[in-house]
Design a protein around this nucleic acid. Sequence first.
DNA 1: CATTTCACCTGGTGGC
DNA 2: TGCCACCAGGTGAAAT
Length: 283
Amino acid sequence: MPELPEVETIARGVHARVRGDRIVHVWFAAHPRLFKAPAARQAKSLLGRVLVAVHRTGKHIVCELAALPKGKLRAGDELPPDTQWIVHLGMTGRLLVTTPDAPVAPHTHARLELESGKELRFVDPRRFGKLDFRDLARGEAFNAAGAEPLEVEQEVFTAIFRGRRLAIKAALLNQSLLSGVGNIYADESLFHAGIRPRRSAGRLTKTELERLRVALKSVLEHAIRLGGSSVSDYVDADGMPGFFQLEHCVYLRTGLPCRTCKTPIRRIILAGRGTHFCPNCQR
DNA sequence: CATTTCACCTGGTGGC
DNA sequence: TGCCACCAGGTGAAAT
């Protein structure tokens, strides 16, 4: 499932391959629920525009698009973006840069044909993903609701959880508090911070919260360096897997010995999700 | 308001 | 081998 490190990896890969390319044809599948703004409006906004940059905000991939100016474009000219195409991968979404003759995978819901001949494809078997766009002229620039885990400072991080009675794991998963943390990195960061997932968020000490902030940041950064976790069907923009799943300490390791103390990893259901922890290392 | 539960989806799994 | 019930979980809406 794509979380912050996977989305970051994909965004970087797409950016490197399509930056400066122009969208010359747009095809969308007829699955209305995939589209927050109507598909026809999105297609109209995408067609003919240049992909100026692709980056990540929370779990969203943001493609910055610019209209081509009327006059001649000179080398080195910066095109100011006027539109954003927003891709959320949901559970099983993929954003792939392919050659036009590459076989079209089942559940391909969007194909953007580029001037260079490449194609940007959105594939999502479960259709939990979402496609949307923003008109920057209307001041609609996309913003994640929660704080960025890689940038948030101690004081803000502490304030986020203050007074909240829900379990810390549930709080970590709440995208309006922190953006980008999903099930894998919630479990892994709580392990590295030595905190049980069921602990009440508001009852954690300042020291524990600081341990959690640092653990979360370093787990996410490590995962980005390894290209993310390929646990179900995640692949990057080139269709290549990541390798952070090899470094998981608790996620999907139920019954296996803790890498630190050999105690078998336990699995519970918390906030409706499978939750993994070491009963000895996490208190 | 804060928090919890559930529907949305399909592919993979395991039981028979 | 085939069939089917069941589960996975990010998000947003509905319920509590």
